[in-house]
Design a protein around this nucleic acid. Sequence first.
DNA 1: CTTATTGTGGATATATTTGTCCTTAATAAG
DNA 2: CTTATTAAGGACAAATATATCCACAATAAG
Lengths: 144, 144
Amino acid sequence: MFSKACEYGIRATLYIAMNSLDDKRVSLRNIAGKINSPEAFTAKILQQLVHHNIIHSVKGATGGFEIEKQKLPGITLAHIIYAIDGDHLFHGCVMGLSVCADAHPCPAHLSYEKIRSQLKTMLNNTSIYDLSHGLETGLTFLKQ
Amino acid sequence: MFSKACEYGIRATLYIAMNSLDDKRVSLRNIAGKINSPEAFTAKILQQLVHHNIIHSVKGATGGFEIEKQKLPGITLAHIIYAIDGDHLFHGCVMGLSVCADAHPCPAHLSYEKIRSQLKTMLNNTSIYDLSHGLETGLTFLKQ
DNA sequence: CTTATTGTGGATATATTTGTCCTTAATAAG
DNA sequence: CTTATTAAGGACAAATATATCCACAATAAG
């Protein structure tokens, strides 16, 4: 479904979000340790998120990553997926046809569009802010 | 969502099915041409489907691939996906956690399981037999 | 028996994704 | 100013997915 990079990106963003709610900035090392991801690879992914203006970084000692609190409710899973994996999941043909639309559909087009529509709704309506609450209360996890 | 191999596999199976309904056996070259896939790579994928008993092959001149007519309604998209991509789509955590279950869920577990459940239902209930009808009537396509 | 056709399967090549290493720049604190 | 810490980013390496090539086995037809 998602690339490894995207999975790490979502987990990292959630960990940063949870800490930003608590006014804490977190370092790459801290993040990678807490979400169980390879550090250097995670660095590349975080840079993508910085370039897409989803997270904010600060260099130097006491530096790290954070997200402006007021931005949190507006950041959705869809934003992160789009930034890292592009729009293939949202628009590509499920059977890989380069042209697949209502007027020229692949055999699974109709039934798959129903699923995709619900998937998109879910991804668009699920904010990082919402998800980080389950983490704070210990109901959900970013590891294992 | 699916690997290239899986996309080719689904398209190839549908093309074989459509021809089997018409009692025609089709060659690798014919298949690859009609579904617009690389021939040698498609050969590998067809082997996987043969080994998983989804399609049947005949060697030699006039040989090719076919599916027993009575098997057609029982073969679903889920069978092909499972044969080629394995069960990750059906069971893996959407955020890549090695352990993710109701008792130890990732932040998106609950909302994603609803989508996945509908996806699984669709894939389990969509037979190759059903899909090949749209192809025969020219309503759906395997190319472009 | 010979030839042409077609699937099988091993070896190899290419592309992409995933992951690592190392230097540089920025910043805080002594 | 020096040192320690941390993100940025280029180069490189490993793993996996995608794709190709070729020798071989099976079969139909002449």
